[in-house]
Amino acid sequence: MATEPLLAPEEVTRIREGVAAAVLGAPEGLADALEHDPAGYLRLVDATRVGAEETGRLLREAVQGARAAGHSWDTVGRILGVSRQAAQQRFAGKSPDPAPSGTGSGGPERRTLTPLSAFDEMAALAEAGRDGWHLVGYGSFFHEVEASDHPWEHCRVTLASGGRHRRLEAEGWIQVGTGWFPWRYYKRPLRPAGNA
């Protein structure tokens, strides 16, 4: 069942050290408290729980991303060291379902763009944006867009893109949702020609 490792040993070490540093470093004063305060260990348990929940979420989104990129359950299972069936049972259907198209509340019309992959989603959003649709939600294999009276542009950046998200927001980009690992999505209304 095992497969050839895709990460070098030093990459594995950097990931493990990065996760440990994040768990120890995020709560204010936690590392120092462990030297003298028994309650610091309870904070460590809580911080580690949050870290485990987040890495579990990232793994689910990474698996859905691999599936959206066209990889089979068999391939995903081999990477995880489990059978195809075990991978599928654990990770299939763990993303939010696309919302139904249209509206029942009298609000703007909504449409679900699906099936999409990491390779064609931005082209689909560019086309929808030109037609006045803007991104309001997303998940594995889909984007939900909402109608408006003007065109939009969309972009995505990796969650690890440092301060780029602050620059985008300073340029008028609006973050949509909290991100879908490894991406963060943005939108902004296009200015009419002559108002640039």
Rank of each mutant, 00 (worst) to 15 (best):
residue 96 P to L: 12
residue 13 T to A: 11
residue 111 R to V: 12
residue 120 D to W: 07
residue 6 L to S: 11
residue 59 L to A: 07
residue 22 A to S: 13
residue 54 E to Y: 05
residue 57 R to S: 10
residue 72 S to Y: 03
residue 112 T to W: 03
residue 10 E to P: 00
residue 166 R to V: 14
residue 41 Y to A: 06
residue 187 K to W: 00
residue 75 T to Q: 09
residue 40 G to P: 03
residue 36 H to R: 14
residue 54 E to N: 11
residue 21 A to C: 03
residue 168 L to R: 07
residue 137 G to N: 15
residue 63 V to C: 03
residue 84 R to T: 03
residue 161 S to L: 04
residue 186 Y to H: 10
residue 29 G to K: 05
residue 86 A to Q: 09
residue 152 W to Y: 07
residue 128 A to C: 08
residue 37 D to T: 03
residue 152 W to E: 02
residue 82 V to C: 06
residue 86 A to H: 01
residue 155 C to R: 13
residue 196 A to Y: 01
residue 44 L to Y: 03
residue 87 A to V: 02
residue 102 G to M: 09
residue 119 F to K: 08
residue 124 A to I: 04
residue 157 V to P: 00
residue 146 E to N: 02
residue 126 A to H: 08
residue 107 G to D: 07
residue 175 Q to L: 11
residue 118 A to C: 06
residue 24 L to E: 08
residue 136 V to I: 15
residue 196 A to D: 15
residue 129 G to N: 08
residue 163 G to S: 13
residue 141 F to I: 04
residue 26 A to C: 08
residue 62 A to W: 06
residue 179 G to A: 02
residue 72 S to E: 10
residue 86 A to E: 05
residue 88 Q to K: 15
residue 152 W to I: 04
residue 168 L to K: 03
residue 27 P to K: 10
residue 28 E to H: 14
residue 47 A to D: 09
residue 3 T to N: 09
residue 102 G to E: 10
residue 107 G to H: 01
residue 60 R to I: 12
residue 129 G to W: 00
residue 59 L to Y: 01
residue 7 L to A: 13
residue 94 K to W: 10
residue 86 A to W: 01
residue 171 E to D: 15
residue 158 T to C: 03
residue 1 M to D: 12
residue 79 I to G: 03
residue 100 P to D: 13
residue 30 L to I: 06
residue 101 S to E: 14
residue 160 A to R: 12
residue 45 V to H: 12
residue 31 A to G: 02
residue 113 L to M: 03
residue 40 G to A: 06
residue 165 H to Q: 14
residue 39 A to D: 14
residue 96 P to Q: 12
residue 95 S to M: 13
residue 89 Q to T: 08
residue 70 G to I: 11
residue 57 R to L: 15
residue 192 P to I: 06
residue 106 G to W: 05
residue 92 A to Y: 09
residue 27 P to M: 06
residue 99 A to F: 00
residue 113 L to N: 00
residue 124 A to D: 07
residue 191 R to G: 01
residue 22 A to I: 03
residue 181 F to N: 07
residue 27 P to Y: 05
residue 163 G to D: 13
residue 60 R to N: 07
residue 1 M to V: 14
residue 183 W to E: 10
residue 103 T to N: 11
residue 174 I to M: 06
residue 123 A to V: 12
residue 31 A to S: 11
residue 30 L to C: 03
residue 143 H to S: 06
residue 154 H to F: 02
residue 171 E to V: 05
residue 132 G to M: 10
residue 50 V to N: 01
residue 44 L to R: 05
residue 132 G to E: 08
residue 119 F to T: 05
residue 116 L to C: 10
residue 157 V to C: 03
residue 109 E to H: 09
residue 140 S to N: 12
residue 4 E to M: 14
residue 18 G to D: 05
residue 17 E to K: 14
residue 74 D to G: 14
residue 83 S to D: 08
residue 176 V to R: 01
residue 72 S to Q: 08
residue 115 P to I: 08
residue 178 T to E: 14
residue 152 W to A: 02
residue 182 P to M: 13
residue 176 V to F: 05
residue 154 H to R: 04
residue 68 A to F: 05
residue 12 V to R: 13
residue 73 W to E: 06
residue 169 E to H: 00
residue 90 R to D: 04
residue 43 R to C: 01
